[in-house]
Computed example of a mutant assay.
Amino acid sequence: MSELSAALAGAVGLYLVVFAVRGLVGIVRAGGEARPLTATADGGVVEVEGTVVDGQRLSSPLQQRPAAFWHVRVVRVRRSPTHPFLRREVDVDQPSAAPITIRTADGPVLVDVAAARMQSGLDVVARDQASTARELVLDGRSQQLRPQAFGSRVVSEGVLVPGDQVWVRGVLQRRGGETWLTAAPDGVVGINTAGHAGRRAGAGAISVIAGLIGLGLLGVSAAALLG
C-alpha cells in the first residue's frame, strides 16, 4: 500500500470513528433514565412513556392538520465551495405554545412545551433552494427566511394528537401537586413518537459498525505507514 493510500485510509478511518462516537453520545443523551417517576427526585432527568391525552385543539401551521401539539423545523443544508462536507444549520425550531398532558403509568405529566422539540415523527413538507426567500407564518407571526447563496432548505413539521404514544425526556419538577417535565441539560424536552426504541437500537448498531470499520482502517493505515 502506498503512503498516499495509507494516509487516505487513515483519514476515512478517523472520520468513521468520530461519526461513531458522536452517534453513540447522541443516543445516550437522548436516552434519558427510564425509571419510575415516584422513585425520582425533583431535578432528575427522566424519560417516560405515555399517551397524549390532552391539549388545545390546534391546527398545524403548514399542513393544517388537527393537533394537540405541533413542531416546525427549518434546516438549511449548505454546501460551501471551500468545504468538502455539507453543513446543516437550523433556521427555525418552533413548537406550539399550548400545554399538553401525557398519561403515564405513574399518572398524568404536563410537558413544558416552550422547550419541547420533537426528535422523531417530523415530516418533510417542503424542500427548496436556499437561494430563494421564503415566508412562514407560525402562531400568527410572519418569519422571513433569508436567502443563501449555496445549498437547499428543508421544512419539516411534526404533529401530535390525543392517543399518540410518545417517549418524553426532560427534568422532573413537581409544582403545586402537578408533575412537569421541563428542559433537560441540553436545553430541550425531547419528544419521540412510536418506534423510537427500535430506531435508537438501529442507530446504535450503525454507529458501532462504523466505529469498528474506522478502527480497522486506522490500524491498516498505521501498519502501512510504520511498517
Results as ranks from 00 to 15, higher is better:
Arg73Leu: 06
Val74Pro: 00
Val75Ser: 11
Val75Trp: 07
Val75Pro: 01
Val75Ala: 13
Arg76Pro: 01
Val77Arg: 15
Val77Ser: 05
Val77Trp: 10
Arg78Leu: 14
Arg79Tyr: 11
Arg79Met: 15
Arg79Glu: 15
Arg79Phe: 13
Arg79Asn: 13
Ser80Cys: 09
Pro81Ile: 07
Thr82Gln: 12
Thr82Arg: 11
His83Arg: 10
Pro84Ala: 07
Phe85Ile: 07
Phe85Val: 08
Leu86Glu: 15
Leu86Ala: 14
Leu86Gly: 06
Arg87Asp: 12
Arg87His: 07
Arg88Met: 04
Arg88Lys: 09
Glu89Met: 12
Glu89Trp: 03
Val90Cys: 07
Val90Lys: 03
Asp91Tyr: 04
Asp91Glu: 15
Asp91Lys: 01
Asp91Met: 09
Asp91Ala: 10
Val92His: 05
Val92Tyr: 07
Asp93Val: 02
Asp93Ile: 02
Asp93Phe: 01
Gln94Thr: 09
Gln94Glu: 11
Gln94Gly: 01
Gln94Pro: 01
Gln94His: 09
Pro95Thr: 03
Pro95Gly: 08
Pro95Trp: 00
Ser96Trp: 01
Ser96Glu: 05
Ala97Met: 09
Ala97Trp: 11
Ala97Ile: 06
Ala98Glu: 14
Ala98Gln: 11
Pro99Arg: 03
Pro99Val: 06
Ile100Gly: 00
Thr101Pro: 02
Ile102Asp: 00
Ile102Arg: 01
Arg103Met: 07
Ala105Lys: 12
Gly107Pro: 04
Gly107Lys: 05
Pro108Ser: 14
Val109Trp: 06
Val109Cys: 05
Val109Met: 10
